[in-house]
């Protein structure tokens, strides 16, 4: 980080925080169109196999979507025959430990911890608990922030995990 760039103001902190809560709510409620509206064209959505020095172009990931693949993912979720999300999982995510760094004059890097409770209603009728941390890269756009990077680091990512067909 460039030392000369100013620290995050309280207003900026609140703005990023509001964005992250909104993003989590759209994801938890499977509001795909509203979630997709938060994205920039250079969006990367990445779930590596947990912590560690995994490289996206070398190590197989749980998920690694650029913007067009993410559009396919959302299209698939909206077909009505994405069996692994039909019916959709009721979910709630708890987010905490928000820390924000500045990337540039109009870009932020945010870190959070999360716990996600997913009711797996497609086949098991059992609750899955997902835990880890997330990184977001956000950019000032015309009227609000937009997201151009989201990395989800699951604490059990390099171990056997159930299906993750929802937007986490």
């Amino acid at each position: 980080m460039n030392e000369t760039v100013s620290v995050i103001s309280d207003d900026e902190y609140r703005k990023v925080e509001r964005f992250i809560y909104k993003e989590a709510r759209f994801a938890d409620e499977s509001r795909y169109d509203e979630w997709e509206n938060l994205l920039e064209d250079d969006m990367i959505y990445w779930i590596p196999r947990g912590e560690g020095d995994f490289l996206p172009d070398r190590d197989v990931s749980i998920l690694n979507d650029n913007r067009s693949r993410l559009a396919t993912r959302i299209n698939q979720l909206k077909t009505g025959t994405r069996h692994s999300q039909e019916p959709r999982s009721p979910m709630r995510k708890i987010i905490s430990n928000l820390m924000i760094d500045r990337i540039s004059e109009n870009e932020y890097l945010a870190h959070v911890n999360f716990a996600l409770f997913e009711m797996q209603v497609q086949s098991l009728d059992e609750m899955n608990i997902w835990a880890g941390r997330m990184e977001y890269k956000l950019r000032e756009s015309e009227d609000d922030l937009k997201m151009f990077f989201k990395k989800v680091v699951l604490i059990n990512g390099d171990h056997p995990v159930p299906t993750i067909a929802f937007i986490i």
Partner: peptide
């Protein structure tokens, strides 16, 4: 090879996620 494999296979893949849930239902 990596990108195509990730699309097809794994917990979030376009294909295998659906195979998994059908298998679960079949077994139950």
């Amino acid at each position: 090879m990596l990108r195509q494999g990730e699309a097809a296979l794994g917990p979030s893949a376009f294909l295998l996620a659906d195979d998994a849930v059908i298998g679960d239902r079949q077994w139950r």
